[in-house]
């Protein structure tokens, strides 16, 4: 697909100069695709800085003439956005920590210890990975209600902290660590807990990062769970908080967009900080939470 142009002067030390049409086409397509992916986000940010009546002005004014930064002040007072953000942070952090601790703990036993029913127990985990949560969400809700946990964040913690996915992911990683390492540590008199803490955990940082991002992103963005469990404003997470805001102020587009932008920021930060691991993690496990 390339056309050879005039040979460049020898002083440039390039034998040939080629106009690579294939490459140019690639760039054009890449940029077009990227713009399509990005357009909704750019539009969102742009709309979040506009007056409601200007949001739908056409032709689209991508950079607002008088950016209304007040939108970003107003959303915090119009709805308890701060509370929603705090709730979501609380939930996300507790779920992520619990998930990491309990699943790496269990995964160690599944990967490196021998005990009766090991395979049967592991099979129970595997069998539920393909089971859609939606199949058992109703009985789960009834059970939680029996425990008196509706309208608490605890319910959502219980829902999300003990997933089969976490155990599976960590176990797969631990399997790749040589048994000799544990064996050597055992001969040196280290307890199993010591091996887990001093050897396995430090070695499994890639898997831990992957699980952290997966858990963080799924918990932060979870919608159906909070929708079912949290009906009181005081306990709502940001996702359903924003939904409440949308249904209350249907016409206040600028504010709705500002709230949406705010809800994206934490995920954006975590994603950018850990995205290298995220991509590696997907590539190696190919699964999601």
């Amino acid at each position: 697909m390339s056309i050879d142009a005039m040979p460049a002067p020898a002083a440039l030390k390039r034998p040939r100069r080629r106009v690579n049409w294939g490459l140019i086409t690639t760039y054009v397509i890449v940029i077009l695709v990227t713009l399509t992916m990005l357009a909704p986000f750019i539009w969102m940010i742009s709309a979040s800085l506009k007056l409601d009546r200007d949001v739908f002005a056409f032709p689209i004014q991508w950079i607002p003439e008088n950016p209304r930064w007040e939108n970003f002040v107003e959303i915090w007072t119009k709805i308890p956005l701060g509370l929603f953000v705090m709730n979501t942070f609380q939930l996300t952090i507790i779920v992520t920590i619990l998930q990491l601790l309990t699943s790496s703990f269990a995964a160690y036993a599944f990967a490196k210890l021998r005990f009766p029913y090991r395979n049967a127990l592991f099979l129970a985990y595997i069998a539920t990975i393909a089971m859609p949560w939606q199949v058992y969400m109703v009985p789960q809700f009834v059970m939680m209600r029996g425990f008196g946990l509706t309208n608490t964040l605890t319910a959502l913690v219980c829902l999300q902290a003990f997933t089969a996915f976490g155990v599976f992911l960590m176990r797969q990683f631990y399997m790749s660590i040589p048994d000799e390492l544990c064996e050597a540590a055992r001969i040196d008199g280290m307890s199993e807990y010591g091996i887990w803490w001093r050897i396995m955990l430090p070695l499994s940082m890639p898997a831990i990062s992957t699980l952290t991002i997966f858990t963080f992103v799924t918990t932060w963005n979870d919608f159906l769970g909070p929708l079912i469990y949290l009906t009181k404003t005081e306990v709502k997470t940001i996702q359903i908080g924003i939904r409440m805001f949308i249904s209350q102020y249907t016409q206040e587009y600028g504010l709705i967009m500002a709230a949406s932008v705010v809800s994206l920021i934490p995920v954006l930060i975590v994603f950018l900080a850990l995205q290298r691991f995220f991509v590696e993690g997907i590539a190696s496990t190919g699964l999601k939470g």
Binding site: L101, T102, S103, F105, A106, Y108, A109, F110, L113, R114, F115, P116, R118, L121, A124, Y125, T128, M131, V135, Y136, M137, V138, P139, Q140, V142, M143, C158, L159, A161, F162, T163, A164, G166, V167, S191, E192, Y193, W196
Partner: peptide, 28 residues
């Protein structure tokens, strides 16, 4: 001792998993 150690590793996750996932699946 080894058995207890192994199960102690699994218990925190498995109890949560059994109560909040396996139970509801059977119930469903």
């Amino acid at each position: 001792g080894n058995l207890l150690t192994a199960y102690s590793f699994i218990a925190p996750n498995f109890i949560g998993f059994a109560v909040f996932t396996l139970g509801p699946i059977v119930f469903a």
